[in-house]
Nucleic acid binder design. Structure first.
Lengths: 172, 172
DNA sequence: GCAACCAGTTGCAAATTGCAATTAGATGGA
DNA sequence: TCCATCTAATTGCAATTTGCAACTGGTTGC
């Protein structure tokens, strides 16, 4: 798949690549939820993506070299989806997107704690996170997918999220 | 106009607001090109937006409180479009989007010089720019639109762009 | 052997997009 | 006054994209 290239403007080109309602949400789930299989992305999606849309987006993101698709050695028709280096470098942009959304849109407390931590951590945390992501998506995508290799930053973000959600559920 | 709110995730919500091929391109032209009238946005668009799409996006962005529409005192059916504070606070996010696009997509030299300067300037430049934008969009939108009030940062960015473009045209 | 699980695909209706033509009012100059 | 031009759109129409539900062909675990 190729982009249209309506112009050579970096903002325009980025919107040609990521400017739809689903692509960045799928990347977010792979990146922050470490969802590496089709079923995980489909069934555990907060937004309820449809299977045909997910399939189309994954195929498109593979062809744009933002994710890779790898055979899962433990299961013949399972695939492992992993982020590529360009997608990992989206971290600072995604941090800013989360920061803006948190300030100006009706977010929920549990789903915005990770954006808050990422914003407060600043470039130092983003770099740590990007290095972790390289380990579980590029260096060892299989180990990253089955949990034998983990990201310390991701563990912290996930724990914070689970704590906030547990606290919210206790209160109602 | 309301957003759908598929979930309370800040990334999802931001994509619900800005996740289409045109909204951020229109905001970019208002912000960096200081295009404040419908005709300027339509005719001087690098990407060739269609008039119905532009009209729909402007209406949607007004209803989302990202831009305001004001009567132009010099012409009864001319309108002045201005950024609101939430849109001005998109500057850091747009800087990151431009930085990523410049690194990973087939940008042209002239249209990416502003993204480069904005990235190199860092948060200090972004804050200066945001203060300038407040002056020409919120404090005095009419003066900002007719050029009697100007943004120093925008003048620098625009001059850099014009210089690169002039240099490119000389070479071919 | 069989139920559950896997990654999708297919069919179809609805919504959105993009292009070209058109509109109604405002303005400027002869 | 007349008329060309400018303004911010709107309309009609074809093509594309989206979203939902059902289905497929194969694999795995018991």
């Amino acid at each position: 798949m190729d982009i249209e290239r309506r112009s050579g403007c970096p903002i325009n080109l980025t919107m040609e690549v990521l400017g739809d309602r689903w692509s960045l949400v799928v990347i977010r789930d792979i990146m922050f939820g470490n969802r590496r299989h089709f079923r995980e992305l489909l069934n555990r999606s907060e937004e309820g993506i449809a299977s045909n849309i997910l399939a189309a987006r994954l195929k498109r993101l593979v062809s744009l070299d933002l994710i890779t698709k790898l055979d899962d050695p433990t299961h013949a028709q399972k695939a492992i989806y992993s982020l590529t280096e360009p997608a990992i470098q989206l971290v600072p942009m995604i941090a800013m997107i989360g920061a803006w959304g948190r300030r100006h849109l009706p977010v929920s407390e549990d789903l915005s704690i990770r954006a808050e931590l990422l914003e407060n951590g600043g470039p130092a945390l983003w770099d740590d996170f990007m290095n972790d992501l390289r380990n579980i998506h590029i260096v060892d995508p299989i180990g990253g997918a089955n949990g034998s290799v983990r990201s310390p930053v991701l563990i912290n973000l996930t724990n914070a999220f689970l704590e906030v959600r547990a606290r919210m559920q206790r209160k109602e």
